[in-house]
Simulated scan of single mutants.
Amino acid sequence: MAHTDMPLAELLKHLEKLAQRSLALWDMPPNASAELINVSENATYLVEAEGGYKAILRIHREQYHSRRAIECELAWIAALKEARAVVTPDSYTGKDGEVIQEGRIEGLENPRYMVLFEFVEGTQPDEAGDLEAPFEELGEIAARTHEHSKVWQRPPNFERLIWNVETIFGRQTNWGDWRDAPNVTPEVGRVLGRVEGHVRTRLESFGASEDRYGLIHADMRLANLLVGPHGTRLIDFDDCGYGWFLYDFATGISFMEDDPRVPALKDAWVRGYEKVRQLTASEKAEIDTFVMLRRMALLAWIGSHIEAPEPQAMAPDFARVTAELGQAWLDRIDAT
């Protein structure tokens, strides 16, 4: 989760103390308390108080985003909502007039950035159910965010992550090297080395023109869609940054790339997307390339976040299945 040698269990104890003590930085009921609901890049807490008060507190991972980068994330969230491109959650201003708060706690060497978000009523689509309708909606939402990103006048000194070949495969990666992930055997490594080479070649040819590459959500999984009484909301822009628009489809099927429903979900996503903006034949032909790019990024993520429960659960088979997906993709390329 963070660039620290501290065991995760110990780190979470410190972060829980920080969360509870930091609630006073915002105007909320005095009896409010925070409960951890997710740990990944950040630690996320549900804040509740008597009388029905609810909010979401995000304590940022150390050394992942600068304060300016978080400001830019919040600026895009607000702009998307103002333009009615998609419905996004609000963030709350602290007592000092700042949206981004900074907190320290004994036991942690460095302070942490924190943001308090509106609690959004709703549920995420059920992955075990029929996903074609949610993916069609997801495609439409993705297209609206991409259309907005093409015309939005960004604030000065705009700073966000970059999701391209070099930040996934290069020397300065966002999530580390896939080769360092658990169970990357020599055989798996040989297959994925060929996959990386073909992904690099194809995306270099594909190009990064403004109609294909821009500001993207970069984590548009079903877990980040909440369907509620007031429509569908897109949450968790923590990974938003510059990348290929089609990468957002690949993030949508994160961790389920081997699901037999994926071809139908891809078709549904494209249907939804093309309600807003058209895709060329050459763009559609490269969607599977972005799936492999994302899958290998996730393999690296598992390796660099192995102390967290979700990566631990996936680690035993993820490298092997990634190689199987990669070999099948290479076989399809050779057949065309």
Rank of each mutant, 00 (worst) to 15 (best):
E98S: 14
L226H: 03
F249G: 03
A79S: 14
N174Q: 06
S254P: 00
R144S: 00
M220F: 06
E62K: 12
R160H: 09
W269H: 13
T167Y: 06
F255T: 03
A133I: 10
Q124Y: 08
T167V: 11
V99D: 08
I162E: 14
T280Y: 09
L15M: 01
N174L: 13
I105D: 10
R112K: 14
D126G: 02
L18H: 06
D27V: 06
E140K: 14
E147V: 02
I306C: 06
V120N: 12
A75N: 05
R271L: 07
K275S: 11
E98A: 14
R68D: 09
A133H: 04
K150V: 09
R154G: 07
I216P: 04
G243Y: 05
D288G: 08
Y92W: 15
I168R: 04
K150R: 15
I105W: 01
W163Q: 06
E73S: 08
F249V: 01
Q172L: 09
E159C: 10
A85P: 07
G122E: 04
N183A: 12
L74V: 10
G214A: 05
I141D: 00
A128T: 11
V291S: 01
V165Q: 11
P155I: 05
R144Y: 00
R67A: 14
L192F: 02
A315Q: 12
A268C: 09
R160T: 13
G52V: 12
S40Y: 12
